[in-house]
Design a protein around this nucleic acid. Sequence first.
DNA 1: ACATTAAGTGATT
DNA 2: AATCACTTAATGT
Length: 212
Amino acid sequence: MSLEDKLKDFFAMQFEQELLDEIVKIGEIKFYREGEILMDIGDNVDFIPFLLRGVFKVVREDENENEIAIYFLERGDTCASTFVNFLHTAKSPVRAVAETDCEVIMVSTHYFDKWMSEYKSFRDYVIESYNIRLNELLEAIDSMVFMKMNERLLKYLQDKVQVLRNTTLKTTHQQIAFDLNTSRVVISRLLKQLENEGKIRIGRNKIEVLDI
DNA sequence: ACATTAAGTGATT
DNA sequence: AATCACTTAATGT
């Protein structure tokens, strides 16, 4: 599939033909393997990533390396905080790590201004993107503040199943514990509980989610 | 066979 | 829900 087709297929927003042409001409395709970092906390951001294929996990971390997964990015998404960074020339407040192998098209922030004023579809896309991220952020706050760990865990598993489009997750209890910023022991016990409730099935390095 | 890593468990706070 | 201390199970070399 050509790059242009991918852009058309995966991005909900209908970009104008001229904008598509520019993205195709200027953009640089990059591939990330599972586990690789697209952008780390503190990095200067001078590009806008458009996600063509794969899933990124966006993670926040404090100075003691306590981390918490905030949300996942799917194809058609972009890292909205990139826009903030661009406008204020700041450093990335989050880390984006490839959850699967990914294909991304990078565009220098240099073109951002121009596209914002020239293309309505781009403006809409940016605003829409901001909106979605904001909502996901609120959801993340809600789940952290109001939900108990067992509910958070189930939500985490279901979210992951949804973005990965695969009901069998390949992960470890420890990794989940990192993402939810809790301990492995707690996750192991809660997973066992979910299994007893018939909502999941546990295997080594693998969890099958039955209750979607 | 041995070391390493993942997961399970009881007790305590 | 977190932590500790320990066991058991699976996997790699």
